[in-house]
């Protein structure tokens, strides 16, 4: 067996880092579409009629029970078949498309629960106060309730984001060339040698990303949480 070459970690980093944007872009896409769908699901669960609520609950229940890698393959093989039934050929779509669809489906279920819990943590009396002050339902929501929801939701959102980043590394299994995919490729080119160095390089990258995410959202939370639990001043 080849001896351990720590300096190869840097070689690996240099080669992998150019693919970081793929990882970040697919994450961003997932967060965008997943959160959007999550908001709609949470909304359905909170107040719409019994039918929508049941549908939303079934969706959340089912998707939360499916491992990401299983969902990834279901989407990768299933979605083209499904679309073909409507005469749309998506077989040549980028791998990133399937990754974003897969993780949006899963992320939406998580976000629905995060948003619902955040919404229900805000005393409904504030909504009533806003309405009786003459604000419309929408104004009461986005001026009074939403800013407080965001603060409550941020820690859970950050957790979900870190999980998404880690699970996203599974995308290499359908051949996407993100940081993980590039790492696998390097190992393959070297016929399995330098595996440890490459995986260490990958750990460093994921570790740094986690640090940035947690620090970034921690700062944001501090910035947004005005009025919450400040030490009582006399």
């Amino acid at each position: 067996m080849r001896p351990f070459h720590p300096e190869f970690i840097f070689t690996a980093l240099r080669q992998i880092l150019p693919y970081l944007w793929v990882t970040i872009a697919t994450m961003a896409g997932t967060v965008f579409f997943g959160s959007l769908a999550g908001i709609l699901l949470a909304r359905a669960k909170i107040r719409r009629g019994p039918v929508l609520r049941a549908l939303s609950e079934i969706y959340i229940y089912v998707t939360r029970c499916i491992p990401s890698i299983v969902m990834l393959f279901i989407v990768y093989y299933g979605l083209p078949e499904f679309m073909l039934a409507f005469g749309i050929d998506i077989n040549n779509f980028s791998k990133a498309f399937f990754v974003i669809v897969t993780f949006s489906i899963l992320f939406a279920a998580n976000m629905a629960e995060v948003f619902r819990a955040a919404y229900e943590s805000i005393d409904p009396g504030q909504r009533e106060a806003a309405l009786s002050a003459g604000l419309s339902e929408w104004q009461a929501f986005y001026r009074i309730i939403l800013p407080q929801c965001i603060v409550v939701a941020l820690p859970n959102f950050t957790n979900a984001l870190v999980n998404l980043m880690k699970e996203g590394s599974l995308s290499y299994t359908i051949g996407m060339l993100d940081v993980m995919g590039k790492g696998q490729l390097m190992i393959g080119i070297n016929h399995g040698s330098y595996s440890l160095e490459v995986y260490l390089a990958l750990s460093l990258i994921y570790w740094a990303m986690t640090l940035v995410i947690e620090h970034g959202f921690g700062t944001l939370e501090k910035h947004l949480s005005k009025g919450r639990k400040i030490v009582a001043a006399s």
């Binding site: 005393d123 009396g125 504030q126 009533e128 106060a129 806003a130 009786s132 002050a133 009074i144 800013p147 407080q148 603060v151 005005k226 009025g227 919450r228």
Partner: peptide, 11 residues
């Protein structure tokens, strides 16, 4: 309208 629990906007 003045509420029993004040219902001030916390933010």
């Amino acid at each position: 309208f003045v509420f029993q629990n004040y219902n001030l906007f916390a933010n």
